[in-house]
Amino acid sequence: MIGNLPFVVCMILVALGLWTLVVKRNLVKLVIGVGLIESGVNLFLVALGYVQGGIPPIYTYAPADAPMVLPTPQALTLTSIVIGVATTALMLAFAVVIYRHKGTLDARKIRELRG
């Protein structure tokens, strides 16, 4: 059970992020909510690749038969982080533009597109 703790923490992070998207009204906080989900997913990926007592997956200077953690999830996480930076930056940029136009970041007031 204790071995599953990292996975549980990741799922809690994702759930908190989803909750943020529903209850928080500030656009920047919504972006933070997406960031929470992203951190949860990234942590989940890294936690998946962990091997008990494993060393970093670098062959140079590695002991002959030491267990290594899986390298693929780390590569995936790195890609996912890069993508996350791009999406977060884009969303924040849109939030800034919206703020300039409407003078508010309150999601309840940013509803020109409805119906």
Binding site: L18, L21, V22, L30, I110, L113, R114, G115
Partner: peptide
Amino acid sequence: LKTWHSGVVNDYAGWFLLIL
């Protein structure tokens, strides 16, 4: 139907949670 398409982004996220 128009009240459902409220324009508030939190509502859209709420609908998504419902579908989830």
